[in-house]
Design a protein around this nucleic acid. Structure first.
Lengths: 203, 203
DNA sequence: CAATGCGGGTGATTACGGTCACACCAGTTC
DNA sequence: GAACTGGTGTGACCGTAATCACCCGCATTG
């Protein structure tokens, strides 16, 4: 078990991380850097997910950094042990395979997001993906705890921090979202957010 | 075994493709569509690769279309049979897992590309990735057969077709690449292309 | 307490790539 | 040979998001 402070480096890029990281609490972000040093956001990791599992399959190095966006509680599982269990227990292989497949689907969706020409829609989609599944069809609002900063969202969407801020300003004045202190984001109008994300409404 | 003409749909998005597609000849492209109907290019498939393997792991639907960019020769392998073999032969699982991992790495690299603020660099990187590994360190040029069209490159890079054309024009006048008929692209100056891709040189 | 740093908010300016509108050319197809 | 079609080449124009330069407020730190 390992705890991380905000900004802590959970997994290092380039090295062969010999363990898999299971997230209990908090939020992580997979990030890469372009040749010229820009940060690129790849995916978010939510509690219950794990990351760093790539090496399990191909023995290669961890391709990207994983950073703690909030204080985080993780469990590290040594790969060697896991590989042995994988041999014996086909169920484990299945779960890990599914996980890998899920990540691929997630990255595909994220990539499609970047194709959207309308910037507000992009932000709304990303916001929508941050909402817990259970809340999505609910009538009442949803609460996102310790939401990513504007910057962290920006790098996910190939936008500048300022642009994300402006979209959020917009969403706030239209009372679709609401800040509740520093570490809480309240989605008050799920319905409208969804329609913005789907492009049925313009911001 | 199945053959496809240029533009043929190899795999359909949304449906549960119950087979895996192994590519012998030609080039395929994974494409998705944004909510507003724009094409988004996800990856290229080169001979020797396969695609459509996601369902093997999670029984989910194929997330994206796969299109034949050139006339293509493929072999379809029914998943059911493959799953059975997987159970018995752990070697097969390993190979498929590695394949999945490789695709994830590929998509990560591709995503990083999109972070590049310099458009020419983006195109050059993409071009560089199209060059066969064996040619990359060679002194002599490299030949890309049936290269993707400008449009097909554009959707990979979130650019417009015109922008890609302009970059290519630039590369041609600087004699870094050369068209050889309609279906051949000759990379004459590998060294410079590499430096452009790495950002060590401006176009 | 001051000092510092980080995250958010905002205006002015501007470069740059998208869009549109063409023209051109080489294959096909009839 | 005419008529199409798909891919490429190019100019003009324009909108928009990046950039830069600030501000504020809050939490943390010594």
């Amino acid at each position: 078990m390992r705890k991380f402070a905000r900004r802590g480096i959970v997994l290092n890029a380039g090295v062969r991380e010999e363990s898999l990281c299971f997230l209990f609490e908090g939020r992580l972000q997979g990030v890469d850097f372009t040749i010229d040093g820009r940060e690129v956001g790849l995916y978010f990791v939510e509690p219950g997910d794990f990351c760093g599992e790539l090496g399990l399959f191909d023995h290669g190095p961890q391709p990207e950094y994983v950073i703690a966006l909030t204080a985080a509680v993780t469990v590290f599982i040594p790969m060697e042990a896991l590989r042995e269990v994988m041999m014996k227990q086909p169920g484990i292989v299945r779960v890990l395979g599914e996980r890998l497949a899920a990540r691929l689907r997630q990255m595909t969706r994220q990539r499609s997001l970047l194709g959207l020409p309308n910037i507000s829609q992009r932000v709304c989609c990303q916001l929508w993906m941050l909402i817990p599944e259970d809340d999505k069809d609910g009538r009442s609002g949803s609460l996102i705890n310790n939401p990513p900063t504007h910057m962290e969202i920006a790098i996910m969407l190939n936008l500048s921090r300022e642009t994300v801020t402006r979209v959020f300003q917009n969403l706030q004045t239209r009372e679709i979202v609401k800040r509740d202190g520093a570490s809480c984001l309240l989605i008050t109008d799920l319905q409208t957010l969804r329609e913005l994300a789907e492009g049925k409404q313009e911001l």
